[in-house]
């Protein structure tokens, strides 16, 4: 069982690397959908005795449905409605992003090794991979310009938290179930993008241009 869980976690790492190097929004959304499916398998390995219970099965089903199907569909719909240019214009380039990703992987491996012994996890890879996924998500949020790409980044960040939660899914199912509430945020973001584009209250959804309110230069221009 540990073997299967480890394979799933390695696939998660690979999907993260694809996200770091990806430029088309379509690719990013597809990759995030694949991540959702991988995550759906993880609760099946969470029972310490290797068994299963209804709670874990329900968790797996709900995860697959929300993260693998519903949210990616909403994102695709937003791409179509908003007609965002497919390329992304990142603050940090793709090759540099990949290098940063490698560094993040090393950091996560170190932190995971420091923290792991506390919890007999699903697999020894679980904690490092969870930390790596959180870091990749945060990196995407900070370095990508399009609001939609940032939402994808948030989804990845949240997937990392969920991955960590799986190690506790048997003892503290409630906390892991609560992480669904983070999916609500993703839903709100996507709805916001769709709705406010339609109402034309916001010409660009480029979050980096949300700089009007920043203190400093822009304020002096106003005077």
């Amino acid at each position: 069982m540990t073997m299967l869980a480890s394979i799933a976690l390695v696939l998660l790492v690979l999907s993260n690397i694809r996200l770091l190097g990806g430029s088309r929004l379509g690719t990013l959304i597809q990759t995030v959908a694949i991540q959702g499916v991988i995550l759906a398998f993880l609760p099946l390995f969470a029972h310490p005795g290797g068994g299963l219970n209804y709670e874990l099965l329900a968790m797996a089903a709900a995860t697959g449905l929300i993260k693998g199907l519903v949210l990616p569909r909403m994102l695709t719909r937003a791409v179509r409605d908003v007609q965002v240019r497919r390329e992304v214009e990142p603050i940090v380039g793709y090759s540099t992003s990949l290098l940063v990703g490698l560094a993040a992987l090393a950091v996560s491996a170190y932190l995971g090794w420091k923290l792991s012994p506390a919890e007999p996890a699903v697999s020894p890879l679980l904690v490092p991979v969870a930390i790596f996924t959180v870091l990749v998500g945060l990196f995407l949020i900070m370095t990508r310009r399009k609001a939609l790409t940032q939402v994808v980044g948030y989804l990845v960040f949240e997937n990392g938290i969920y991955t960590f939660g799986v190690s506790l899914a048997y003892r503290q199912p409630l906390l892991v179930e609560l992480s669904v509430l983070l999916d609500v945020f993703v839903g709100v973001f996507v709805m916001g993008i769709i709705v406010f584009h339609i109402q034309r209250e916001f010409d660009h959804i480029d979050a980096d241009k949300l700089s009007l309110l920043r203190d400093g230069e822009s304020q002096e221009e106003h005077q």
Binding site: A118, L138, I141, F157, I161, L168, S179, F185
Partner: peptide, 24 residues
């Protein structure tokens, strides 16, 4: 929404860590 939702995510991670601290 964007900044606070990241904060909330980190707080959930903090709660998960505290649950992990309880031991197996």
């Amino acid at each position: 929404l964007m900044i606070c939702s990241v904060g909330i995510g980190l707080a959930l991670l903090g709660n998960l860590f505290i649950a992990a601290a309880l031991g197996p």
